[in-house]
Nucleic acid binder design. Sequence first.
DNA 1: TGACAATAAGTGTTGTAACACTTAATATTA
DNA 2: TAATATTAAGTGTTACAACACTTATTGTCA
Lengths: 155, 155
Amino acid sequence: MSITLQEELRQSKPFPSPEAEAAVSLARTAACLDHATAEMLRPYGITATQYNVLRILRGAGPQGLCRNEVRDRMVAPVPDATRLLDRLVFLGLVTRDRDTPDRRYVTARLTEAGATLLAELDPVVAAGNQRLLGHLGAERLRALIDLLAEVRARP
Amino acid sequence: MSITLQEELRQSKPFPSPEAEAAVSLARTAACLDHATAEMLRPYGITATQYNVLRILRGAGPQGLCRNEVRDRMVAPVPDATRLLDRLVFLGLVTRDRDTPDRRYVTARLTEAGATLLAELDPVVAAGNQRLLGHLGAERLRALIDLLAEVRARP
DNA sequence: TGACAATAAGTGTTGTAACACTTAATATTA
DNA sequence: TAATATTAAGTGTTACAACACTTATTGTCA
């Protein structure tokens, strides 16, 4: 590691606690990855959030998922899943139908075009992940994943 | 760790690679902390981004910092630092003056009110960090910080 | 069964993020 | 030193995020 976070952000003072440093480290690192992912997806005309929805719907298969179910599976919470889906419908990547017995639900499904786009993106995203995180190696990646899980599993 | 990320997001399939799982873990964990921080700051009427600017300006002291310098020290990059500072000026937390020899620069400085607000927030944020990350303990926090630094230091 | 609570989705509105473009001031150099 | 490049800041515009509020449908139970 050639440069500390303190230098990276040109901070004059050291962090007041390991907790504070970890919080900033996490935010900073996530922002770096976010940025890189956004750049990766830009040529394809979708955002990371939209990509997340498409993957969720692919995972659900032909059965689809209702709005709130999509919302609850998002990596980062979104307060307006309706209009997020609106845009994907507009782009022709998702359909939406009120076709369950309980007519309150609206089922979202991936279209053919959405599936095609995802298939095109799969290798791009895999290569991106490799480029962004591959240098850590399996062992440290596992350690990182476990530590992050512990962060989220606070009592 | 009682629940896996896969369960947390109700994913039907396991992650295709450790890199993919690490990327999602990072985004997810950062989103959790972001959310908690936003809740913490909400009663005080500022966002995490604004809080970040205030801390940067406090670190700079009475000398202040020019717009781009503030922008470059942000934890997450912002494309519109001008209007971000606009709002802080409007809130009375920051001043802005074109007072250097090089008249292209505009120097931003924390006001008395800004310093007071930060002083009020310091214990709140410290307690929040403790609550969100304290359960890891110093050793694992250090391991996490180091791993995150390695992620950012990709070749 | 009729009133009321609960749930799912959508809407209205405001503020902010993102991106490209413009203006102003200083450096550079032919 | 005049023309051009570079740097700093600001502006215009679009789309998206966030939050509170409304509507529609179903569940619950006196």
